[in-house]
Amino acid sequence: METLNPRGRRLLVALPTMFSGTGDLDLDATARVGELVAQSRADGAFVAGTTGEFLALEPDERQAVFDTQRVALGGKRLIAHIGAGSVRQAVALLETGLAAGITEFAALTPYYLPGTPLGTYQHFKAVSEAAAGRARIYIYLFWARTTTVVSPGELARIAALPGVVGTKISGFNLAQVMEYRRATPPEFEVFTGNDADFPQAAGNGIDGVVSGVASCFPNTFDRMIAALESGDPASIAAAQAEVLEVVELIAGDIARIKVALAAQGRGGSAVRMAIEQPSDEITAAIQAAVAKYQGV
């Protein structure tokens, strides 16, 4: 389905990686999740990021997920996450992705051991040089998960590197994300990882949202896009209420996302990381919301 989103209303879907009950990579189910995006009005997908449990994937598995979603997305944008603990690993993932024809990548800051401003800059400079005009690079900031802090001024310096075209910022509210927007050039793309901020993004100079919840409730976000395009305040308010309801229900939890997908016949709820499965009560609430908003 074609998207008509102008800049400022872009929706990228953060896709989960699906596993079998024994923890093996389930590429068939992974593809079925990507197909939801292909059928939606989202612009594309953010693949093998935090929602995709990238830390639990072997390098060859991550590339297999990239390849699978390229097909499943049916020509929509794929931003392949190559973030890793070292620049050596990130560049290796970049080269493999480039060889497979991928041209858009996201790279998380160094993590676990916090990167210094100079060390972080050098990390992304090496990624930029490796891309050498062959790819578009997005800088992924998630201080709460990585312990690496990048200030707005430091991001502005990184943004000047060749091929670095944008950023995804997770864990910050809209006011904080706007500080990065003001510090970077107008053509530099700024995405927030806060699902609920989609309707407010455009009016505040933010290019769009990378949403994990949209992977399991795509119809909800399609209705929000339609409401925003209509400009009707009542429709926008109703769509925002629905978005807030499902965002609160999922609560940024990967297992809950997978429970919602399981209710739609798109795989099981297995995770590899140390994530607790939802209670029976929460599972029932998710299944009810899927029936209500996804028509399943």
Rank of each mutant, 00 (worst) to 15 (best):
G163V: 04
I102Q: 06
I137W: 00
F105N: 01
T167H: 10
R136T: 04
Y121W: 07
A107G: 09
A130S: 14
E154R: 12
P152Q: 15
R136I: 02
A131K: 02
T103H: 14
F124N: 13
G171S: 11
T103L: 15
I137D: 01
V149P: 03
G115A: 13
F105P: 00
P152Y: 14
T148Y: 02
W143Y: 06
V150R: 02
P114E: 07
H123I: 05
Y140G: 03
W143Q: 08
L155Q: 02
K125C: 09
G119E: 01
K125D: 03
Y140C: 10
S128Y: 02
P152E: 15
L141W: 01
A175V: 13
L118H: 07
I102E: 01
A156T: 09
T109G: 10
G133C: 12
A100R: 14
L113G: 06
L174N: 10
A132H: 09
A131P: 00
E129A: 13
G153S: 10
P117K: 08
Y111D: 02
T148H: 03
A106T: 08
G101K: 15
L141C: 11
Q176S: 15
A175Q: 14
Y112S: 04
I137N: 02
K168E: 00
A132P: 01
F124T: 07
G119C: 10
Q176P: 05
T167I: 09
A156G: 05
Y111Q: 10
F142D: 00
L174I: 15
Y138E: 03
F142R: 00
R136H: 03
L118M: 13
R145E: 02
A175G: 07
I102F: 10
P110E: 08
A100P: 05
T109S: 14
A132W: 04
F142S: 00
W143T: 08
L174T: 08
W143C: 02
L155F: 06
G115T: 01
A132S: 13
E104H: 15
T146V: 03
I139Y: 06
Y112H: 01
L113I: 11
Y112G: 00
Y121D: 04
R134P: 00
A159W: 02
A144K: 12
A175P: 05
V177L: 13
V127F: 03
P162W: 08
A156D: 01
L174F: 11
Q122P: 00
V127M: 05
A131H: 02
P162A: 11
T148K: 06
A100F: 11
A160L: 11
P114H: 11
A144T: 12
S128N: 05
V177Q: 09
V165S: 06
Y138N: 02
T167R: 14
V127D: 00
I102W: 04
R145P: 01
V149E: 11
L113V: 14
L108T: 12
R134L: 06
A135M: 10
V165I: 12
G133A: 08
Y138T: 02
T147H: 08
T120Y: 09
